[in-house]
Write a protein that binds this DNA or RNA. Structure first.
Lengths: 336, 336
DNA sequence: TTGAAAGCGCTAACAT
DNA sequence: ATGTTAGCGCTTTCAA
């Protein structure tokens, strides 16, 4: 039997409330009793039951996180950022993996709400945005990261400026002399995928380069999609001279197809993408990429929740746009 | 105000217990009332309070996980495995990041215990193993992964056979003709670091090759350590012809030092390590590595907990040893 | 079949 | 300064 408040109260012939007070440092407790209580807690190895506390408090000291792919380094860094802020605020983090499955995502939102988390950070895959509305309305702070939900509801958001970053990346490709550009992006119902495509288009258009629809691919944000799309393109007579992939996985898939065909990078095709943050230092050629401040995104989202929790009053929806960094690398680019 | 059991009971003029029963599918409830209740639940959008349930049940439907580095792909895969099993069993996962800090690890163990998790999976950094004993005794199932704790207590464990895998890797190096081998391993108070070193030593000894202490390095399982150690070695007159790194981070750090010095792999030094599982397909040279079944380790650990929870009776400690896979790659090896 | 009521372990308002 | 007690929202025994 695990020991609880009343046990240590009985043990010392004091009231449970005195014990509770000394534990929480609230209310008045005589110095001497306080000390006896402290000692007894230590001796008996008392561990407060956080579940009971949460029930009383009507909020668990926890943050819920839903990401679409737990093994994606981008998201692990996001979570690391969240965890760090949460820990500093005596909260813990419940991590859920939707696996790009909108239905699972919904299930998890429900689960987290039922567990009365203090807030919820979600990289939505946006299958059925309306489904989230009732939850958002419930008052528990929601913070979206990465993707914007397609709803009219007010929502908090932490992201980067995808259009701008994409524009910049594309411009760099053009500056290298490339005129035949291809893009492989993610699901177009996800704002990241769409916006990266938009930035690409806009840049081409601003530079008077025509974008040919035949070189626009869209799939899931996964290797398999990048691979399949490039595999398909390789059947054609001509190839673009440069590829823009909307995330690193898509690029890895595409390069796999290229390599299998015996083509080389950047000689046969230059490449650039989002999210390729080489931790190993061994990726060759070195990649040109837009890198998001993943850790900071997570930290900012968590802080947003902590702030709202403290303030109590559910004020207006916030929107934080962080700076991404552009890392050009000649070895993956080589102009035309 | 969020709606609760008694609200829907009042709404229908039935008792809370009837509502509770239909929700849980326990006890007898008339078919008609059941249906009315179901309908009302739907209509009013009732969300059961899991905190209250957990309090009553005396156990939260959650698994606690403590890893030493959340952004290490090995651990994200472990967590993914845990999450998958947990989700299938209607549990959620609380993720904690000890950051290789034994003190933080202890804090988190306490936190998770206080939150009455159903079980706890921990990649211990093993700073102060005795500190965990009281918790292990508490009855909540503990499962260690990766590192074995240095305690006499009974504990559950899921790992690979590090000595054997290490032996195999070393043998391969020898088979390529290498005779001057160096090893960089992790903190020797961690069983993984120690065992990988032991397998290395044993293999050399079995092959009549002498291991020179001067080529044995030990640091944290981080890039910085690998870098620092190799940097130091580079000051010497001679270098080994092959390097064995006890994990991928150590290797990346070491190669960084080698590259800075203008040395090449495998020409100037062959390399091999644990945990280098290239998801990108772009790492060059392709690495020779022992790869652990990270996802399966997580899944097995989670299943162990679920099993114990179901059975109730805390039976004897279990130990599961999974198979690692050895992935040789000529391009990082080239014999002498 | 249905309902009343006793807790789960804790906090906080209130009384002493 | 200390103690008593009414809940937090739910499950579950026990009676009706």
């Amino acid at each position: 039997m695990t020991i609880q408040l009343k046990d240590i109260a009985k043990y010392l012939n004091v009231s449970v409330s005195s014990v509770s007070k000394t534990i929480n440092g609230t209310g008045r407790v005589g110095k001497e009793t306080r000390e006896r209580i402290m000692k007894a807690i230590e001796e008996l190895g008392y561990q407060p039951n956080e579940v009971a506390r949460s029930l009383k408090r009507k909020s668990a000291n926890s943050l819920g996180v839903i990401v679409s792919d737990l093994s994606n380094p981008f998201y692990s860094k996001v979570i690391k950022g969240i965890e760090s802020v949460a820990s500093r605020n005596d909260h813990h983090v419940i991590v859920c993996n939707s696996n790009e499955d909108a239905h699972k995502e919904e299930e998890y939102v429900k689960l987290l709400m039922q567990n009365r988390v203090s807030g919820l950070i979600i990289a939505s895959v946006g299958g059925n945005p309306k489904a989230l509305k009732p939850y958002i309305r419930s008052g528990i702070p929601f913070v979206f990261i990465d993707n914007e939900p397609r709803i009219d509801e007010q929502y908090n958001l932490v992201t980067i400026d995808n259009i701008k970053a994409s524009y910049e990346l594309t411009q760099h490709l053009l500056d290298q002399g490339h005129r035949h550009l291809a893009i492989i992006t993610g699901p177009l119902d996800q704002s990241t995928a769409l916006e990266r495509k938009l930035g690409f288009e806009k840049c081409l258009s601003d530079n008077g380069v025509t974008m040919s629809e035949q070189w626009v691919g869209s799939g899931e944000f996964k290797q398999a999609s990048g691979y399949a799309i490039m595999k398909d393109w390789l059947k054609r007579d001509q190839l673009p001279t440069a590829l823009f992939a909307a995330n690193d996985f898509l690029l890895y898939g595409a390069t796999k197809a290229l390599y299998e065909r015996g083509l080389r990078i950047p000689d046969d095709m230059a490449v650039a993408c989002f999210d390729a943050d080489d931790e190993t230092g061994l990726i060759r050629p070195r990649l040109t990429s837009v890198v998001q401040p993943a850790y900071d995104i997570g930290a900012a989202a968590a802080e947003m929740i902590m702030r709202r929790k403290q303030e109590g009053a559910p004020r207006q929806a916030e929107r934080i746009v962080l700076e991404s960094s552009f890392r050009p690398n000649e070895s993956s680019l080589k102009g035309r």
